[in-house]
Design a protein around this nucleic acid. Sequence first.
DNA 1: GCGCATG
DNA 2: CATGCGCATAAGCTC
DNA 3: GAGCTT
Length: 254
Amino acid sequence: MIDRPHSLNRCPDGISGECFYQKDIDHELPSGLYTKQIFSESKNAYINYFICNGVEALLYMVNLGCIDMHPWHSRAGTLEYPDYAIIDLDPLGVGFEVVIKTALEVKKVLDELSCEGFCKTSGSKGIHIFLPLGAKYSYDIAFNFTKLLAGLVSQRIPDITSLERSPLKRPNRVYLDCYQNRMGQTIAAPYCIRPRKGAPVSAPLLWEELKKPLRPADFNMQNIFKRLKKTGDLWQKMPGKSINLEKILRNIKR
DNA sequence: GCGCATG
DNA sequence: CATGCGCATAAGCTC
DNA sequence: GAGCTT
């Protein structure tokens, strides 16, 4: 989350009350906290995005009623260049075992292309797959690369996956959502608690953990620290890494 | 949670 | 003075 | 052209 613009998902009345999104911070911040003006094409105006620059900033968000956190994929200093590309596996009408099956197929494709990837539960129903880019490529390139990968995956398991955006056109499928790879899009940060019953968290996983009995609710506010103690912070394997896109694209042509 | 407009 | 409302986004769809 | 989905 550090140094990233955030969309604030505020739930001032807790998970049973109404939540709302806020991007534009219109009030003064305590010293040490800051916003960054980022131009919005649609608004044709600047938005003061909250930049989370440390623990105090995180606590400030919590105090505004934020439960789950929604950081950008790029940091304030390199806004145009995401640190990772994301494939969001989003099931519609199928169980988590099908999401696992899909994720394993993604992993297979990644392995064949010698492309490094990391995965985590979304905290709700799906799985997020991260491909480290090291702020070397644009959002546009990240978007197109994930579309290419998603195409390869859905070719192999067309019966359980779909690339269709409309829910009507992807019944009982896992949606391979590449749409997140655009500037300003966000997904729930690793380890954040989702505002749902049971307080599930988005949990980084080892690929080897993707097998049958696993369920998203296995990871929650109550037990995540015990897991952290045991596995360490799996997400710390990500920072600083980057795939070599030129090399990987050559592997596809074969 | 809070500022603002409305009645 | 109580009550209600807004507080996100861009683009490709379908209707 | 409005409305829905992410």
